[in-house]
Structure formats: structure tokens, C-alpha cells
Design a protein around this nucleic acid. Structure first.
Lengths: 242, 242
DNA sequence: ATTGGGAAAGGACATATGTCCTGAATTGGC
DNA sequence: GCCAATTCAGGACATATGTCCTTTCCCAAT
């Protein structure tokens, strides 16, 4: 992580994401811009959090590691997203590890200033409420979905969600996006089993493998399998009502 | 549902749960007390929400039903808890169905007044933030836990969490608390499989069956199985930091 | 070109879990 | 007390998923 001394850039992001009212006058001087390289850990499960981060550029991966060493990828996030919000409100240790999947740019602010100047600042509180309810909503869907559907359906849904916003319909290997074992951990299954299911999909003509890369061939077929259940990872409609 | 015209009682609850600053002067006249009988639906998945409810007495069950008709019980809640908070903030349809498991008493307030008088009221926003982050925290744990552990472990954990706050260590049949099929739906498995695992537990001497009722015999044994992972359903420590 | 390392795919087997169905047990009504 | 209807426990089988290990393939360093 390195701090980016570029007030201009910071202001640009604040404007672009309409955060100017959220971080009002007294908070402004304490905002900084931070850059992370692919693979950098932005925060680590179990540690004491210090900063609230706002993801404004790049892609991050959020995961948890069990005491037995298993990893579960909880989500991939793109802007606008907030890290450390739940911990800020509850005063608890960091819940999940956050890692940069690409180069990442985040706005950071120390809890100290949030407590001091943001505690009663309604726009900030409203912003946090919106972000957190959205997280809750996504996680709630994710929980039900995972518990109620077999891996086959989850994979179909996952493939659709990952490829929908990419230009082409390929699931990249390691370079640009998400590895297969990340995918396995995200779906909550073993790498072995993931391969098994992908094989099935190949036989059915839904996808094709091309040395480590999965290419979606039949979106409609996958969609039928997924049964309209898609992992959400974008801000749904239903705009702010607050 | 029936409205309870008892200002005295309402004020008592407000005091008991320290909600007096949360619902300030302009909101007060619009608070009402509502009673529900066991089995009543407090709100229904997919409908348009109108009221924010605060659970102040009794026990409720929150569940979702998939399009295939499967039911997944997400949680059981006791006071203090809030229903309709996420929907209020996001302006979305009701996410899950909520049902009274015992006689239930809730404070209700129409969204209309929350929007009108509560929108910028920091104590209310802070209260919602605390409640929702807590929900998020619990759901996050629940997701990882369910995805990373087999039914055996989840059941052990469930039995511990359900019996810890009861006077005796029995999992009641249908009358007072939670039915076995609710338990199955909560753990996210089939009734059949639940029985299978219970049978194992009986053989190992961890629990005993007594006509429909499960009696915990060896909490330590269950605890070892659960491996310190306990379903959370109470407000953890880590008090407010806001 | 050669080779060693490591990722990637898949085989073999064990276990976990789901579905369907049957028989026992329980309850409410007469 | 007896019977029908309902609930509950469990058998039999199929499927889903996990673990371990082997094979193949690719690439980098020599």
C-alpha cells in the first residue's frame, strides 16, 4: 500500500461518486488516497481495524479462512464499495480478509476522525446505511442460494454473473480476473468437484475449456440451469429511499 | 395482529430498551404496540412493506421460501430486534417471511413517519446501523459456517445455541419452541438427514430422544464436535462504538 | 533440447446428503 | 376403547461432494 498524494484525483473521485456530502468539511482534510497492487492485502481477518476504505477503482476479493485452513471467498467487489464499515459501527475485529485482485485505488479515513466528526453527520450515516443494507441483502441472497441449490446451479449462476459485465464471455485464468480455485472457494466447493461439474458442462455444450480458460458457449442454457437465480454483485435497482 | 392500546406499556418498552432517544418527539405519536399470536405472519416475503417493527417481547422465526417450494429458516430472534429495517433503507419488497413462534409484542411505526421525521435524526440512524451491522455480522458467520461445515457440526452447534438459554436442556417438540423440521430447514438439510445425524448422536451418547423431544446429554461432547463454532443469535459483546 | 517443478485435469474411492417410500407411533374423534 | 388420519422414524437407493493420488502438460532455468 502506498499513499497517493493527489488532491485533484481524490476530489475527482468524491465528485464522481457523489460523496461530497458524505464526507463533509471537517472530514475532508483527513481523507487520503491509497493504491494497492494486485495481491496486496488491504486488511486481514482478526486484526484491529483502523481505517474505513472506500473502493473507487479496481477489483477486490473478500474471503475468510477457517481454523482448519479452508478458504471461502465471500465476494468480489467493484466500485462503489466500502470496507471496514461493519467493524467501524460495531467496534469489532476485522471480519474478513480483503485482497486486491487488480490494481486498486481506495479512499481511506481513520476511524478516529469518523468518530470525532462523523458520528452525528446524517449524510454519512445514511451512506453507511445504504452500503450496509445492500451488503446484507446480497449476503442474504447468497446464503439462501448456496444452501438451497447444488453446485451445478451455483456454478451456472456464477459463470453468468462473472461474464455478464466482461466484454467477452471468457472466464480468465489468473491474469486479469479470477482463478478457477477462487471460483471453487467462492461457490463453496472443492476444486476437484468444480472440475467435475465443468466437465459436465462441456459435455452438454454449455462451456468450453481452452487451456485453463473457461469460455461460455450457451448463456441461455446456463440461465435455464440457474433458474433465474443470479449471484448479485452489483447495486440493484431500488434506489435510495432514505 | 391486533393493536394494543396501552401507552403505558409502550413507554415501558421504550424505557426498558433505551429507545427514547431513537424515537424522538415527532415520531412518538406514531408509534403503536401490536400483538401477534403464535403462528401469525408478521410480514410476508415479496410484499410491499409498510411498517418498521421493533420486537420487544416473544420469539419470531425468519424464513424464506424458494420458487421450488423449499423453505429455509434463516434465524430465530428474540428482543431486541428490528424487522423491516433493510427494506426501509433500500425501498425494496420484503425479503423474508417473519412468523411469530410464541405470542409476540412489537412496536410498529409506519415508514411514512420515519421518512418524514426520522430521515435526519442521527440517533435513529445510529440505532439502525447498529442493528443492521449486527444482522450482517450474524449472517456472515452463518454463511461461512454453513458452507464450510457438514451437517453434523452444524447440528451440534445448533443444539448448543438453542439449549443454552433455555432453563433445561431439551429441544422441545412443537409446543413451546422449535420443531424438528424447522431445525432441519434452519440447518439447511432435509428432515431425513437430520434424523440420520440425530441417530448418530444418540449412538454416541450425545443426545437422547424422548418421543419427539431431543434431550442434550453431553454438552462438552457436542462442543468438541462443533469446534467452538456456535451459531450466534444474541447480541455479542463489543458494545456500541458509534 | 533437457529437465525439474508446479499447475491443471481427472481417476478411484469414501462420505455426505437427498428422495422416495414404508411401517410404527400418536393423536383426535366417536 | 377403537379407528382413521396424521406425524414421526427409519430403510433402500441414488446422487452430490470430498479426499487422495496419479497423470499430463506447460514453462522456466539450465
Amino acid at each position: 500500500m502506498k499513499e497517493i498524494q493527489d488532491r485533484e484525483q481524490l476530489n475527482h473521485y468524491l465528485r464522481a461518486f457523489q460523496l461530497e456530502s458524505v464526507f463533509h468539511e471537517p472530514l475532508l482534510p483527513h481523507l487520503s488516497l491509497y493504491g494497492f497492487e494486485q495481491g496486496d492485502l488491504i486488511c486481514t481477518q482478526g486484526q484491529a481495524p483502523e481505517y474505513l476504505y472506500v473502493l473507487v477503482n479496481g477489483k477486490i476479493k473478500i474471503y475468510t479462512t477457517s481454523s482448519e485452513g479452508k478458504t471461502l471467498v465471500l465476494s468480489f467487489k467493484t466500485p462503489l464499495e466500502v470496507i471496514g464499515d461493519v467493524e467501524y459501527v460495531r467496534g469489532t475485529p476485522i471480519l474478513n480478509t480483503v485482497e486486491a485482485v487488480s490494481s486498486v485505488c481506495m479512499i481511506g479515513i481513520h476511524y478516529r476522525w469518523l468518530h470525532k466528526y462523523g458520528r452525528d453527520h446524517a449524510p454519512l450515516l445514511q451512506f453507511l446505511l445504504e452500503i450496509i443494507t445492500q451488503k446484507f441483502y446480497i449476503k442474504s441472497n447468497s446464503l439462501s442460494f448456496n444452501l438451497m441449490h447444488p453446485v451445478e446451479v451455483r456454478l451456472a449462476s456464477y459463470l453468468l454473473s462473472v461474464t455478464s459485465d466482461e466484454s467477452d464471455s471468457r472466464l480468465e485464468g489468473q491474469q486479469s480476473a479470477v482463478s478457477l480455485s477462487d471460483a471453487a472457494n467462492f461457490i463453496g466447493t472443492s476444486y476437484r468437484h468444480l472440475n467435475r461439474v465443468i466437465r459436465q458442462f462441456c459435455i452438454k455444450g454449455l462451456v468450453e475449456r481452452d487451456k485453463g480458460v473457461i469460455v461460455v458457449k450457451d448463456r441461455n442454457g446456463l440461465s435455464a440451469l440457474a433458474g433465474h437465480n443470479i449471484y448479485e454483485h452489483n447495486r440493484g435497482k431500488g434506489g435510495t429511499r432514505l
